[in-house]
Design a protein around this nucleic acid. Structure first.
Lengths: 362, 362
DNA sequence: GCCGAATGCGGAAGGGTTTCCATCATTTTC
DNA sequence: GAAAATGATGGAAACCCTTCCGCATTCGGC
């Protein structure tokens, strides 16, 4: 873009501040430069059919007058907003930051603006969607980590606005997500392959799609390794905040396992790192050490995980953000593009909590 | 162009979806309702001088036609953007989320839009500022946790746009910050009052204002307790990422202390929680337990701190975000308002790392 | 030296609102 | 009952840009 050209001019700053930011329009430039407004616009938008001399003169005048195009007049006339909005639940914390990072990276590379709608409570989604859907407001919307309410879904389909889903899936929109089942499979398999015969799972609320998928993967891993699945070995904490993906739920679930006494598994796949934190607290309160007495594998690879030496499944969050924008922009350019669903595979990050490292050292 | 209105009959939702969201303008409503466009605008903006019947009719028609005002046409005509932009460094992680949460909360309460510019590298600031400064684009800008480059600063003063600083201070703009010195004082004093005669400090790079202020507070606490300050007892890690507020720097600094042998202090004030994480790793690698062998107090109260049982100074981040917006909006309403600087006092959160609590008390 | 094509350019017409002013209708006041 | 005040309304103008149409000029080819 060319705005930056006008941003930083050479003239004496003291002088300029006296001039006082009077709103300069293309008409002013046109008059001053002795040309028509059409020409001004053409110069500023790098339209080819302008002679080099005219162009030079116009640019000179524009700079001298310290011209700044009016964003909203441009957007109105161009019939596009150069804006993308993102509806993101704040409570996903680290996940959300990382994805947002990717989103922002790509968005600013493309010269778009990002309008952020941070969701604290599910009921806010509808209001935000309504705002984002205001006519002309944005060129596209990204929804993160949430089941879009049916009501909103219907409205989204009505408008022809490009929509993208991240960390969520719906047949009607492009989506970028993580292979939850596959990740859970890998995590569980890792524990099994370390020799554990009995692997428990701490899951989140089954209303959450990721929770369900992770359970699937866990189950499949057991089966492939010839171990029969048992309801007894899957526990869910009572705390339902964030669909059970919270620290206390992990604590509660592990406490239940501890109560099993000698029948308690010595290895666990925990459906999120944050739950694993709680689980570890519960363990240490009961005198179990990790990984010496109990092995754990989490899911997400949030920042804490590294500090806690937690073995976990990493989601390529930054990349997901980048791809989400790329996909959205592609759809803006070509609305009839076939709907695309991309799933990223999480990768196993081996740290200490699973016991694999200590084992190798011996 | 407008014929579709005539085909658009009442009810029948199936029909509606076929009609396809044709852009409805106030002219369409005016024609349909048999009134002038001025009246439409008045109704939609709750202007008083419209009869109840007219109002009712207009609203009915607007609803029937599924009218949506065009955001940018409004903003152009109203001469205001109903948008605030925030320039935030992403790397502050948890701090940034929490503040952003407060910002978002207030902003959406006020019906504004938030345009986010996430900074990864300092050199991006200038570009973002230029974008935010585009004529008419935003009604105000908030800068977070950064020293605004002089070049940009000059530019900001030139435009009369309301500007706010959060977690940073400059005489020319409103600011919301944290009393770093005071917090450092409290943290250090806490350790001293627990009976420690020798308290070390792990600091960040002195180019950072917060680092400097925290050092001040540490120093003052020592003095007030009749203990002389010693350069030896302040260490800074070599890793300069994020001005030294990073995990590795904390690790490195603590390693230096460990090398002191028996002269090593048994209590430390660490200038950020994230550095404290590194410090703890260094300690545990060298056989020191926290808090039995060494007491620590951090600063920030990031999420990790709770999980690590780290005693620390909490910054009221959410509130800071809320206040930042309130202040900015106040300045928009009254640009001649006196410049206001608000500092929040951090509060001491006592957990286990300082040794003040026994393990069982939690 | 002529003709058609190519090129540069001016400015009207849009884009969709808000706002202000004049107009007309209705009350109020004396 | 006339004059004045009040209130609702229509619509032009303004907000500031992009785009398109058509005109004028230049250029290349023969």
């Amino acid at each position: 873009m060319t705005e930056s050209n006008f941003f930083c001019s050479f003239g004496s700053p003291s002088k300029k501040s006296e001039v006082m930011a009077k709103k300069v329009t293309i008409y002013d430039i046109a008059r001053e430069a002795g040309v028509g407004i059409g020409t001004i616009s053409r110069v500023l938008n790098d339209h080819p059919s302008v002679t080099p001399e005219t162009r030079k003169k116009v640019i000179e005048v524009a700079k001298r007058l310290n011209y700044q195009p009016h964003t909203y007049a441009q957007r109105l006339a161009r019939r596009q907003s150069e804006t993308i909005s993102a509806v993101i639940p704040f409570f996903t914390n680290y996940f959300f930051i990382e994805v947002l990072r990717g989103v922002q990276d790509k968005i600013s590379e493309l010269g778009y603006d990002l309008v952020l709608y941070g969701v604290e409570r599910p009921d806010q989604v509808e209001g935000y969607a309504a705002r984002a859907l205001q006519r002309g407001k944005v060129d596209g919307i990204l929804f993160f980590s949430m089941k879009v309410p049916d009501k909103v879904l219907a409205r989204l389909k009505e408008t022809n606005l490009p929509i993208g889903l991240v960390d969520a899936v719906s047949p009607e929109f492009d989506s970028i997500s993580v292979a939850n089942a596959e990740g859970a499979y890998a995590a569980t398999a890792h524990l099994l392959e370390l020799g554990h015969q009995s692997v428990g799972m701490i899951n989140a609320q089954p209303v959450s799609a990721p929770a369900l998928e992770r359970l699937q993967g866990y189950r499949r891993a057991l089966e492939r390794h010839g171990i029969s699945f048992s309801d007894e070995l899957v526990r869910i904490g009572r705390n339902t905040k964030q669909d059970g993906f919270n620290r206390d739920a992990g604590y509660e679930a592990m406490m239940e396992f501890v109560k099993m006494g000698s029948g308690m598994p010595k290895a666990f796949f925990v459906s999120s790192d944050i739950q694993a934190m709680g689980a570890i607290s519960a363990l240490s309160e009961n005198g179990f050490r990790v990984p010496e007495d109990v092995a754990l594998v989490g899911f997400d690879d949030i920042e804490l995980a590294r500090h806690m030496r937690l073995t976990t499944m990493r989601q390529p969050m930054f990349q997901m953000g980048v791809l989400a924008i790329e996909r959205l922009v592609a759809r803006m350019a070509n609305p009839d593009m076939e709907i695309l669903h991309t799933t990223f595979s999480p990768t196993l990050i081996v740290r200490e909590s699973c016991g694999a490292l200590t084992r190798n050292q011996n």
